[in-house]
Design a protein around this nucleic acid. Sequence first.
DNA 1: TATGAATGAGCGTTCATTCAT
DNA 2: AATGAATGAACGCTCATTCAT
Lengths: 209, 209, 209, 209
Amino acid sequence: MTTEKAKLKRPQKSAEERRHDIVAAASELFAEHGFQSTDTQTVADKAGVGKGTLYRNFKSKEELFKATLDMHLDELRATVVRARESEQDPLEKLRATWLAYIGFFEQNNNIIELFIEERLYFRDQERSLYFTRLERSRDEWRALFEDILRVYPNDEVTASELMDISGQLVHGAVLLSQHTAITQSTRQRVDLMMRIFMHGFIKPGQDNI
Amino acid sequence: MTTEKAKLKRPQKSAEERRHDIVAAASELFAEHGFQSTDTQTVADKAGVGKGTLYRNFKSKEELFKATLDMHLDELRATVVRARESEQDPLEKLRATWLAYIGFFEQNNNIIELFIEERLYFRDQERSLYFTRLERSRDEWRALFEDILRVYPNDEVTASELMDISGQLVHGAVLLSQHTAITQSTRQRVDLMMRIFMHGFIKPGQDNI
Amino acid sequence: MTTEKAKLKRPQKSAEERRHDIVAAASELFAEHGFQSTDTQTVADKAGVGKGTLYRNFKSKEELFKATLDMHLDELRATVVRARESEQDPLEKLRATWLAYIGFFEQNNNIIELFIEERLYFRDQERSLYFTRLERSRDEWRALFEDILRVYPNDEVTASELMDISGQLVHGAVLLSQHTAITQSTRQRVDLMMRIFMHGFIKPGQDNI
Amino acid sequence: MTTEKAKLKRPQKSAEERRHDIVAAASELFAEHGFQSTDTQTVADKAGVGKGTLYRNFKSKEELFKATLDMHLDELRATVVRARESEQDPLEKLRATWLAYIGFFEQNNNIIELFIEERLYFRDQERSLYFTRLERSRDEWRALFEDILRVYPNDEVTASELMDISGQLVHGAVLLSQHTAITQSTRQRVDLMMRIFMHGFIKPGQDNI
DNA sequence: TATGAATGAGCGTTCATTCAT
DNA sequence: AATGAATGAACGCTCATTCAT
C-alpha cells in the first residue's frame, strides 16, 4: 500500500509496452493541456521512463502527438464499427453509431480539441489526421444512408445530404456536450436527434397554417 | 518651437485606434497560426508598433488573445442580431440567423479553432469566452424557438430541445465547413438544414412500413 | 577597488560595443576550450550579457564562432600589412612579416587551433575562413618574393616555390612554437629561419666533398 | 559438447581483433568528423559491435580517441623509422624521412587535425600525445642532424637548430598540403625543401650586391 | 562476454516580458 | 508615451554511459 510504487531501476519492458505506456501518458497530458503546453519531461515522468526513451520511440514531440491521435482514431473507429454492426435495422444502426460516436468523445475528454489543435499547428505540413480518416470512412456512412433511404424512399433528399446533416448533428453534439448543462443522458440526446432527424419538429399537416 | 511640432509624419493616432490596430493585426495572426505559435514580435510588426506598445495596451499576450476573441464575439453577435431582426417570421428569423452564423465563420477563417484553443489553454483559469457568451444568449435563442413553437405547436418537443438541436446543426456546420468538399453554397446548406429540421427526412405516413 | 564591478542593470551600451564585448569573451573561451566545449551560457556570463543578447547579435553559436575567427583574421592581416610596410628592403620586409606572423600567434594563444577546428567541423559546409583568406593574400606574398628574386636573381627557383617554403616555415613555426622548449626568442628563431632560407646550412664549396 | 561448439557463425574474434576493429572504425570516423562530432553509436555500428562492447574495451570515448591516436602514432613512427633506415647517406636519410612523414599525413587524411584537436580538448588533463612522442624522438632526429653536420661542418648552426627548421618545414608542409593547389608531387616538394634547406635561394657570391 | 534499450545531465535556442532611453 | 534592446526561464532534443538480459 505504499504510494511510492517501488520504482524499479530500468524495468526493461517489451518495446510494445513501452510505446504504449508513453502514448497513454502523452495522451492524457495532451488532452489536459494541449500539445504545446505539454512538455516532454512531464510526459516522460508520467510514463515512468527517461526522456531519452521518449525519443528512442518517437522521432519528436510532434510524432508522439500524432501517434496519440492515431491511437485515438483507431479506438474511435473500432468503437463505431462495433456499434454499427451490433444492429440490423438501418435506423438502429444509425442510432447506435451516433451513440457510440458521442459516447467516445464523452469518455475521452478533450480529444476533439486535440484534433482541432492538430489542424492549427500542422496546417502547413499536411492534412489533418482526423479529417483524413473522416473522409476515408465517408463511403461507409453513405452506404448506411442509402440503406436507410431504401427503406424510407424520399426523392427530395440524397444520401450525401443526409450524411452531411448527420455529420453536423454528431460533431455539434461532441463540441457542445461539455458545455451544455448536462440535464440529459447521451441516450436521451441521441433519441431527440433521431426524432428530429427523422420527422422534424413540425407535425404533418401543420405546415401551411 | 513646441515639442509637439513637426510630428506630422507620424499620424498621431488615438489610443483607441492603436488598440484597434493591434487587435486587428493579432487577430489575423492568431487565426492563421494559433495562439502559441504566434509571437508577439510579429504582432507588433504587423500592427506597426513597437513591442513595448503592445504591453502598454495589453497586460500580456494572453490578454491580447482574449481581446481579439472579444472583438470577434462582438462582431459575431452584431451579425447575428442584425440577421435575426431582418426578418419577421420566426422560421425566417431562424434561417437568417443560421445563415449569418455559418457565414460569419466562413468569412473569418479558423476563428472557430481559436475559440477551441482558448478552451484548451486557459481551462484552469476560467470559463471559455465563447461558451460564456453562448450561454448568455441562450435566452434569446430560446425565445425564438418558443415563438416558433407558438406557430407550430408540438407538445412532444420543448424549445430547449429545439435550441440544442439547432446548436448542434450550426456548430457542426461551422466545424465541418472547411473540410467538406464545397459542392453547395451556404444558402443551399442552410435550406437543407431547415428542411430536415422542420420535417425530417421521412415522409409522413411512411413511418410504419 | 571593489572586485564586484558594480554590475549595473541593463547597461544599454551601443550595439557596436555589445558585439565587441561578446566577440571578445567568446574569443577567449573558444581559444581556451575549443568551439564545441564552450557553452553559450558561459560566453554570455563572461561577456556580461544575457543569453538572449548573444542570439540577438549572432544567429547561432556557429556564427559567433566565425565572427571571432573573422576578427582575429582582421587583426592578423592588419598586423602583417603593418609589418610589411614598415620596411623598404624586400628581405627585411620578409623578416618583418615572418616576425609579425609568428608573433601574432604567440600573443593569441591557441588561435591556430581554432582555425583548424573550423576546418574539422564545418568541412562539409564551406571552405575554411583561414585558408580562404590565405589564398586571397597569396598575390601579395608572391609579389614580395618576386621583388626578392629581382634583387637576388635565381633561375633555379620560382617566386611561388619560395612562397611555399616560406609558408611551411611560418606555419610550422606557429604550430610548434607552443611545444618546443622556448630556449630562443621569436626574433632569434626568425633570424635562423632567414639564414637557412637564404643560404641553407651548407657552406659554399662544401657540396661535393 | 563444449561450450565453445557451434558458434561457427560468429567468427569468434579474439579480444585483440575486436579492439583493433573498433580502433580502425573509430579512426576513420574521428578523422572525418573530429572527436566531438563523432558519436559512439556510429563507431559501434561501423565496427560491427554493440555499444556495450565499446565500453568494455575502452573506458570512455576519450580513451578510444587516444587509442586511435596511439595507433596512428605507432604507424607514423614505423613509417619514419623504416624510411630512415632505408638509406645510408645522412642527407638521403633526411630526404627519405621527410618524404615518409609528409606521405603519411597525405595518406591519412585529417590526421593532423586530430592531433591538434586533442591538444584543444584535453589541454587541462595532460600533455598531448603527439607532442609527447615528438619530444621522445627528438634524440633520433638530433643524431641525424649531427651526422649531417659531421659531413657538412658548419659552426654557425647547431644540430638542434637544423632540427627545428626541419620540423617547421615538415609540419608546415603537412598542414598546408591539403590547401595548396597540388601542382607538384610530394617528391618534388621534398626536393625543393631539400634544395632550399641545403643551399638557400641566394646564389653564392650574390650576397653583398 | 556481448548487447542495445534506457537513462538524464547538458546544451543550443526561443520568446514573453521588462525597462532604459 | 513609444520604442526595441536586453533578459533569462523554459523547452526540445542529443548522446556518452550504464546495466538488465
